[in-house]
Amino acid sequence: MAMTLRLTPDQDHALTLLASAQGTSKHEAAIRAIVSAAARTLADGAVQDTARRLLPGRAELEAEIRRARS
């Protein structure tokens, strides 16, 4: 699937630096960054779900923190 990625000059510079550090093209660096972020997000969700099941009171504590932030 084709997609156009619009970046600010600063974002493009960051992607250029990332690609250079990885020794890849900007295209490949962007793909790796997306896959890495998705994996972290999904893993974080799995850890949160496990913690909710195994740690008594975690759901209540999370709700209290959210209320305090509002």
Rank of each mutant, 00 (worst) to 15 (best):
H27Y: 05
A14T: 01
R53W: 01
T16G: 03
E64T: 15
K26N: 04
T16W: 05
R67N: 10
M3D: 08
A30P: 00
L5A: 05
A39R: 14
D12S: 09
L61P: 01
L54C: 04
E62R: 04
R40H: 13
Q48W: 12
A19P: 03
L7M: 06
A38S: 14
A46M: 12
S36C: 01
D49M: 10
P56H: 09
Q22T: 05
A30Q: 01
T24L: 05
I31C: 07
E60G: 09
L55R: 12
S70F: 10
A39G: 08
T8K: 01
S20I: 09
T16P: 03
D49R: 12
K26M: 02
R69V: 14
H13Q: 08
G57V: 06
A59G: 10
R66M: 06
P56A: 03
M3L: 15
R67E: 15
H13R: 08
Q11M: 09
A2E: 13
A33Y: 02
A21T: 10
T4V: 15
R40I: 08
L17C: 00
R6M: 07
A68E: 11
I34V: 13
M1S: 10
R66S: 00
V35C: 01
A39Y: 15
Q48V: 15
I65D: 02
K26E: 02
A33P: 02
Q22D: 11
S36L: 11
L42H: 14
T16H: 06
I65C: 05
E62V: 04
A2H: 14
G45H: 11
I65S: 00
A14E: 03
T8W: 07
L7P: 01
A43T: 15
A14Y: 00
S25Y: 07
D49E: 12
A30H: 05
R40C: 03
T8L: 07
A33Q: 02
A38E: 13
R67A: 14
Q48C: 14
Q11D: 03
M1A: 10
L55W: 06
A51I: 12
R32D: 07
L5C: 08
